[in-house]
Design a protein around this nucleic acid. Sequence first.
DNA 1: GGCGTTTCTTGAACTAGTTCAAGCGGTGGC
DNA 2: GCCACCGCTTGAACTAGTTCAAGAAACGCC
Lengths: 190, 190
Amino acid sequence: MYASLLAHIARYVSLSEAEAELLPQYLKPLTLARKEHLLLQGQVCTANYFVVQGCLRTYFLTEKGAEQTVQFAIERWWLTDYASLDAHAPSEFFIQAVEPTQVLVLEQRVQEELFAQLPQLERYFRLVLQRATAAALFRVKVLFGQTGAARYQHFSTAFPEFVQRVPQYMLASYLGFTPEFLSKIRARME
Amino acid sequence: MYASLLAHIARYVSLSEAEAELLPQYLKPLTLARKEHLLLQGQVCTANYFVVQGCLRTYFLTEKGAEQTVQFAIERWWLTDYASLDAHAPSEFFIQAVEPTQVLVLEQRVQEELFAQLPQLERYFRLVLQRATAAALFRVKVLFGQTGAARYQHFSTAFPEFVQRVPQYMLASYLGFTPEFLSKIRARME
DNA sequence: GGCGTTTCTTGAACTAGTTCAAGCGGTGGC
DNA sequence: GCCACCGCTTGAACTAGTTCAAGAAACGCC
């Protein structure tokens, strides 16, 4: 359970064994069923979630009532709504388990204590956020730089296992088009 | 020059006067003419830029050769390409001054020394990155959640001074449509 | 203060992707 | 083992936004 997080932390900063053993005091495991929500629109987001096993997504409802997926998180990704977390404001998003999922929950109010105990983690989260920021910029580049069909083709060759794993309507909205259009792209590819 | 950065840092963490006086050793001022580049596609990005006065943008060239703006930075924003910076890899983006601009340059290789001297800055940059990540998510929400015309209307009521400041073709591509279409939206609004 | 470049506008033809509606297939729940 | 539902497909009509081209306006610079 915690091994996955410790391995991830070790990529960025080093913790002694004694330090590593402190983590379970601060992060609580949680198991989610398929389609279970961690956050509903309108609620204040109070925690950061690390995916040990499974898949989460962030989505919102468009004016027409369609679910628009804005990000996915699979194993070893952190997911939260920083806008809501930082400002203690109601979230505009839903966070939901795409499949049965195990997460570690880091509550915002214990995060400060954790950083006081293990100051290296301040650096760890900075580096995790740098990667997230780079990923967000790349996502905007892909959305603007290529057609829907090209986005699907690149995505499905880059992450073939992931395409199998999530319902196509979630993937379609993540890639910026309708499920019907995705179906037509697949038909065209033969 | 440094007062702007110190005021920004003070929003997130506190530095003593003695600590504040160390900053000029690490960050170098730089003045850019309109349209001057800080980074060209293909170069490795080696620094993080803080805008004291003026405006920067990140853009890339689409297959058709059009400039696609992906982000702007005005006073008190940091801008860099973290993908290139972290991986020491050639950047896919250009970073350019939209107007005459003064920046403070934090070279990647001196950033580590700076954090060793002033560990609070590790936290400062983490918090700056949290805001950037929240802004990136919000941007995706706006791009997917509303039509081009609605995006322009909301943007120009939220940031009227900014709309005056940048050429419309940059704003059009930032908002996800062509300059011609922006012109037509404006005509429709009368 | 005028010249050259850059930026903005307008219109007409076009296209990538949407919308709506109907049918089909798999599968999870009891 | 059956039913209900959810997700996927297909086609036809549609629309938001693009493309291309040409002229008008505005700006920055010496």
